[in-house]
Computed example of a mutant assay.
Amino acid sequence: MHKQRFLQLALHAKALRFGEFTLKSGRLSPYFFNAGRFDSGALLAGLAACYADAVDAAAVAGSIGDFDLLFGPAYKGIPLATALACEYARRDRDLPVAFNRKEAKDHGEGGTLIGAPLDGRRVLIVDDVITAGTAIREALALIRDGGGIPAGIVVALDRQEVLNEDDDGRRSAAQAVAEETGVPVIAVANLHDLLDFAGENADLVGHRDQLLAYRARYGTAATTD
Protein backbone atom coordinates (compact mmCIF):
# COMPACT_ATOMS: atom_id res chain seq x y z
CA MET A 1 0.00 0.00 0.00
CA HIS A 2 2.95 2.38 0.44
CA LYS A 3 3.19 2.86 -3.35
CA GLN A 4 -0.38 4.17 -3.68
CA ARG A 5 -0.06 6.19 -0.47
CA PHE A 6 3.10 7.81 -1.79
CA LEU A 7 1.62 8.66 -5.19
CA GLN A 8 -1.55 10.05 -3.61
CA LEU A 9 0.52 12.14 -1.20
CA ALA A 10 2.71 13.38 -4.07
CA LEU A 11 -0.39 14.38 -6.01
CA HIS A 12 -1.82 16.19 -2.98
CA ALA A 13 1.48 18.05 -2.41
CA LYS A 14 1.70 18.93 -6.13
CA ALA A 15 5.04 17.12 -6.13
CA LEU A 16 3.56 14.98 -8.90
CA ARG A 17 2.01 16.85 -11.82
CA PHE A 18 0.68 15.88 -15.22
CA GLY A 19 0.82 17.85 -18.46
CA GLU A 20 3.77 18.68 -20.71
CA PHE A 21 7.16 19.27 -19.09
CA THR A 22 10.55 19.74 -20.69
CA LEU A 23 13.10 17.82 -18.66
CA LYS A 24 16.75 18.69 -18.20
CA SER A 25 17.47 15.97 -20.77
CA GLY A 26 15.36 17.87 -23.31
CA ARG A 27 12.69 15.16 -23.38
CA LEU A 28 9.05 16.25 -23.35
CA SER A 29 7.50 14.35 -20.45
CA PRO A 30 3.79 13.91 -19.66
CA TYR A 31 4.54 14.08 -15.93
CA PHE A 32 6.94 15.77 -13.54
CA PHE A 33 8.08 14.94 -10.00
CA ASN A 34 9.56 17.48 -7.61
CA ALA A 35 10.27 16.25 -4.07
CA GLY A 36 10.85 19.85 -3.01
CA ARG A 37 7.07 20.25 -2.83
CA PHE A 38 6.98 18.06 0.28
CA ASP A 39 7.47 21.29 2.15
CA SER A 40 5.68 20.93 5.46
CA GLY A 41 6.08 18.81 8.57
CA ALA A 42 2.97 16.76 7.81
CA LEU A 43 3.96 16.14 4.19
CA LEU A 44 7.51 15.15 5.13
CA ALA A 45 6.23 12.85 7.87
CA GLY A 46 3.88 11.13 5.42
CA LEU A 47 6.66 10.81 2.86
CA ALA A 48 9.08 9.38 5.43
CA ALA A 49 6.54 6.72 6.39
CA CYS A 50 6.32 5.68 2.73
CA TYR A 51 10.11 5.51 2.50
CA ALA A 52 10.33 3.41 5.67
CA ASP A 53 7.66 0.98 4.44
CA ALA A 54 9.44 0.61 1.09
CA VAL A 55 12.82 0.03 2.76
CA ASP A 56 11.39 -2.48 5.23
CA ALA A 57 9.63 -4.38 2.42
CA ALA A 58 12.87 -4.48 0.40
CA ALA A 59 14.80 -5.71 3.44
CA VAL A 60 12.32 -8.53 4.01
CA ALA A 61 12.55 -9.45 0.33
CA GLY A 62 16.35 -9.41 0.48
CA SER A 63 16.63 -6.59 -2.08
CA ILE A 64 18.91 -4.56 0.20
CA GLY A 65 21.25 -5.50 3.00
CA ASP A 66 21.34 -4.49 6.65
CA PHE A 67 22.13 -0.85 7.41
CA ASP A 68 22.81 1.17 10.53
CA LEU A 69 23.21 4.75 9.23
CA LEU A 70 21.23 7.02 6.90
CA PHE A 71 23.05 9.32 4.49
CA GLY A 72 21.42 12.25 2.67
CA PRO A 73 23.28 13.66 -0.35
CA ALA A 74 23.11 17.45 -0.56
CA TYR A 75 20.70 19.03 -1.04
CA LYS A 76 17.35 17.25 -1.27
CA GLY A 77 18.67 14.11 0.37
CA ILE A 78 19.38 15.98 3.60
CA PRO A 79 15.76 16.58 4.73
CA LEU A 80 14.71 13.20 3.33
CA ALA A 81 17.29 11.27 5.36
CA THR A 82 16.49 13.37 8.44
CA ALA A 83 12.75 12.78 8.09
CA LEU A 84 13.34 9.05 7.60
CA ALA A 85 15.49 8.93 10.74
CA CYS A 86 12.63 10.57 12.68
CA GLU A 87 10.17 8.02 11.26
CA TYR A 88 12.40 5.12 12.29
CA ALA A 89 12.77 6.65 15.76
CA ARG A 90 8.97 6.68 15.95
CA ARG A 91 9.16 2.96 15.14
CA ASP A 92 11.67 2.43 17.98
CA ARG A 93 14.73 2.22 15.74
CA ASP A 94 17.23 4.99 16.45
CA LEU A 95 19.48 5.49 13.43
CA PRO A 96 22.35 7.98 13.09
CA VAL A 97 22.30 10.45 10.19
CA ALA A 98 25.04 12.03 8.08
CA PHE A 99 25.12 14.23 5.01
CA ASN A 100 27.59 16.17 2.91
CA ARG A 101 28.28 19.76 1.97
CA LYS A 102 28.45 20.72 -1.69
CA GLU A 103 31.72 22.49 -0.93
CA ALA A 104 34.26 21.56 1.74
CA LYS A 105 34.43 23.89 4.74
CA ASP A 106 37.92 25.19 5.55
CA HIS A 107 37.15 26.60 9.02
CA GLY A 108 35.44 25.44 12.20
CA GLU A 109 35.05 21.66 12.12
CA GLY A 110 36.01 21.72 8.44
CA GLY A 111 35.58 18.95 5.93
CA THR A 112 32.77 17.82 3.66
CA LEU A 113 30.77 15.51 5.93
CA ILE A 114 28.37 16.51 8.71
CA GLY A 115 26.68 14.34 11.30
CA ALA A 116 27.45 10.87 12.58
CA PRO A 117 30.81 9.25 11.71
CA LEU A 118 30.67 6.78 8.82
CA ASP A 119 33.61 4.57 9.74
CA GLY A 120 32.55 0.92 9.91
CA ARG A 121 28.88 1.77 9.38
CA ARG A 122 26.60 0.14 6.78
CA VAL A 123 25.05 3.09 5.01
CA LEU A 124 21.67 3.54 3.34
CA ILE A 125 21.64 6.50 0.96
CA VAL A 126 18.33 8.40 0.87
CA ASP A 127 17.53 10.67 -2.09
CA ASP A 128 14.62 11.85 -4.22
CA VAL A 129 15.49 10.51 -7.68
CA ILE A 130 18.48 9.32 -9.70
CA THR A 131 18.71 11.43 -12.83
CA ALA A 132 22.17 10.99 -14.31
CA GLY A 133 23.64 9.19 -11.29
CA THR A 134 26.43 11.74 -10.82
CA ALA A 135 25.36 12.88 -7.33
CA ILE A 136 24.87 9.29 -6.15
CA ARG A 137 28.31 8.24 -7.39
CA GLU A 138 29.84 11.22 -5.57
CA ALA A 139 27.99 10.21 -2.39
CA LEU A 140 29.23 6.62 -2.70
CA ALA A 141 32.81 7.87 -3.03
CA LEU A 142 32.42 10.11 0.05
CA ILE A 143 30.96 7.26 2.08
CA ARG A 144 33.77 4.89 1.15
CA ASP A 145 36.40 7.55 1.79
CA GLY A 146 34.86 8.02 5.24
CA GLY A 147 35.15 4.31 5.99
CA GLY A 148 31.48 3.54 5.46
CA ILE A 149 30.07 0.53 3.62
CA PRO A 150 27.25 1.37 1.15
CA ALA A 151 24.35 -1.03 1.83
CA GLY A 152 21.74 0.39 -0.53
CA ILE A 153 20.14 3.40 -2.14
CA VAL A 154 16.48 4.36 -1.78
CA VAL A 155 14.77 6.98 -3.92
CA ALA A 156 11.21 8.23 -4.03
CA LEU A 157 10.48 7.68 -7.72
CA ASP A 158 12.22 5.63 -10.39
CA ARG A 159 11.18 7.00 -13.79
CA GLN A 160 12.36 3.72 -15.38
CA GLU A 161 13.52 5.50 -18.51
CA VAL A 162 16.75 5.08 -20.42
CA LEU A 163 19.60 7.31 -19.42
CA ASN A 164 21.06 7.11 -22.92
CA GLU A 165 19.08 6.09 -25.99
CA ASP A 166 22.29 4.73 -27.53
CA ASP A 167 22.68 2.26 -24.66
CA ASP A 168 21.99 -1.16 -26.23
CA GLY A 169 20.96 -2.47 -22.82
CA ARG A 170 18.35 0.30 -22.46
CA ARG A 171 19.27 0.82 -18.81
CA SER A 172 17.86 3.48 -16.52
CA ALA A 173 20.14 5.66 -14.41
CA ALA A 174 19.18 3.56 -11.37
CA GLN A 175 20.03 0.32 -13.18
CA ALA A 176 23.35 1.74 -14.39
CA VAL A 177 24.31 2.84 -10.86
CA ALA A 178 23.37 -0.56 -9.38
CA GLU A 179 25.26 -2.49 -12.07
CA GLU A 180 28.37 -0.30 -12.04
CA THR A 181 28.72 0.09 -8.27
CA GLY A 182 27.25 -3.15 -6.95
CA VAL A 183 24.97 -1.17 -4.61
CA PRO A 184 21.26 -2.09 -4.83
CA VAL A 185 18.76 0.67 -5.68
CA ILE A 186 15.13 0.55 -4.60
CA ALA A 187 12.31 3.03 -5.11
CA VAL A 188 9.19 3.84 -3.17
CA ALA A 189 7.35 3.75 -6.52
CA ASN A 190 8.21 3.60 -10.22
CA LEU A 191 6.68 4.34 -13.63
CA HIS A 192 4.87 0.98 -13.65
CA ASP A 193 3.22 1.87 -10.34
CA LEU A 194 2.35 5.32 -11.69
CA LEU A 195 0.62 3.76 -14.70
CA ASP A 196 -1.43 1.51 -12.41
CA PHE A 197 -2.27 4.49 -10.21
CA ALA A 198 -3.36 6.63 -13.17
CA GLY A 199 -5.49 3.81 -14.56
CA GLU A 200 -7.41 3.49 -11.28
CA ASN A 201 -7.92 7.23 -10.77
CA ALA A 202 -10.81 8.80 -12.67
CA ASP A 203 -9.09 12.21 -12.63
CA LEU A 204 -5.85 10.83 -14.09
CA VAL A 205 -6.95 8.09 -16.46
CA GLY A 206 -6.92 10.59 -19.34
CA HIS A 207 -3.14 10.91 -18.93
CA ARG A 208 -2.50 7.16 -19.19
CA ASP A 209 -2.15 7.04 -22.98
CA GLN A 210 0.52 9.77 -22.86
CA LEU A 211 2.34 7.87 -20.11
CA LEU A 212 2.24 4.67 -22.16
CA ALA A 213 3.53 6.48 -25.26
CA TYR A 214 6.36 8.01 -23.24
CA ARG A 215 7.27 4.63 -21.78
CA ALA A 216 7.25 3.03 -25.24
CA ARG A 217 9.76 5.63 -26.45
CA TYR A 218 12.00 6.07 -23.43
CA GLY A 219 11.28 3.12 -21.14
CA THR A 220 13.95 0.68 -20.10
CA ALA A 221 14.12 -2.75 -21.67
CA ALA A 222 12.31 -4.25 -18.65
CA THR A 223 9.35 -1.84 -18.94
CA THR A 224 8.88 -2.13 -22.69
CA ASP A 225 9.14 -5.92 -23.08
Rank of each mutant, 00 (worst) to 15 (best):
Pro150Ser: 09
Ala222Gln: 11
Gly46Tyr: 05
Asp53Cys: 02
Leu113Ile: 15
Ile153His: 04
Ala189Asp: 06
Tyr75Gln: 05
Val183Ser: 09
Asp225Ala: 15
Ala45Lys: 14
Gly65Ala: 09
Ser25Asp: 06
Ile125Pro: 09
Gly110His: 02
Leu163Gln: 13
Thr131Asn: 10
Ala57Asp: 14
Gln210Leu: 11
Ala151His: 04
Asp225Ser: 14
Ala81Asp: 08
Leu95Val: 15
Ala83Pro: 10
Leu69Trp: 00
Ala35Ser: 15
Arg217Leu: 13
Thr220Gln: 02
Ala116Val: 06
Asp128Pro: 06
Asn190Ser: 12
Ala54Leu: 03
Ala54Tyr: 00
Lys76Leu: 06
Ala52Arg: 15
Ala189Gln: 01
Ile64Leu: 04
Asp196Cys: 12
Leu9Trp: 04
Leu70Ile: 07
Met1Val: 11
Phe32Val: 06
Asp203Phe: 00
Arg144Ala: 12
Ile186Pro: 10
Ala52Trp: 00
Thr181Asn: 01
Lys105Asn: 01
Tyr75Ser: 11
Leu47Lys: 09
Tyr218Leu: 14
His2Asp: 08
Ala59Val: 05
Tyr88Phe: 14
Glu200Leu: 12
Gly41Arg: 12
Ile153Asp: 05
Gly46Asp: 08
Ala74Arg: 03
Ala178Cys: 03
Gln175Ser: 10
Phe99Asp: 04
Tyr31Met: 11
Val154Phe: 03
Asp66Lys: 07
Leu47Cys: 12
Gly65Ser: 08
Glu200Trp: 01
Leu44Pro: 06
Leu28Ile: 14
Lys105Leu: 05
Pro79Cys: 07
His192Asp: 14
Lys105Arg: 09
Phe33Gln: 09
Gly133Ile: 03
Arg217Thr: 15
Asp193Ser: 08
Glu161Ala: 06
Ala135Trp: 03
Ala52Cys: 13
Arg170Thr: 02
Pro96Tyr: 04
Lys24Cys: 02
Cys86Thr: 13
Ala135Gly: 13
Asp158Gly: 06
Ser172Phe: 00
Ile114His: 00
Asp128Ile: 02
Ile153Tyr: 02
Thr82Val: 13
Ile143Pro: 09
Asn201Tyr: 01
Gly111Ala: 00
Arg121Glu: 03
Tyr88Asn: 11
Ser40Arg: 08
Ala42Val: 11
Thr112Phe: 10
Ala213Glu: 14
Ser63Met: 12
Thr131His: 01
Ala216Glu: 14
Leu204Thr: 03
Gly120Gln: 05
Arg208Trp: 00
Ala141Thr: 15
Leu163Asn: 12
Lys3Ile: 13
Tyr88Trp: 14
Leu113Trp: 00
Ala189Gly: 07
Gly199Thr: 03
Leu16Pro: 08
Asn34Arg: 03
Ala104Asn: 06
Ala189Ile: 06
Asp145Gly: 09
Val154Gly: 04
Ala173Leu: 07
Lys24Asn: 03
Glu179Ser: 13
Phe21Arg: 07
Ile149Arg: 15
Glu87Tyr: 00
Tyr214Trp: 09
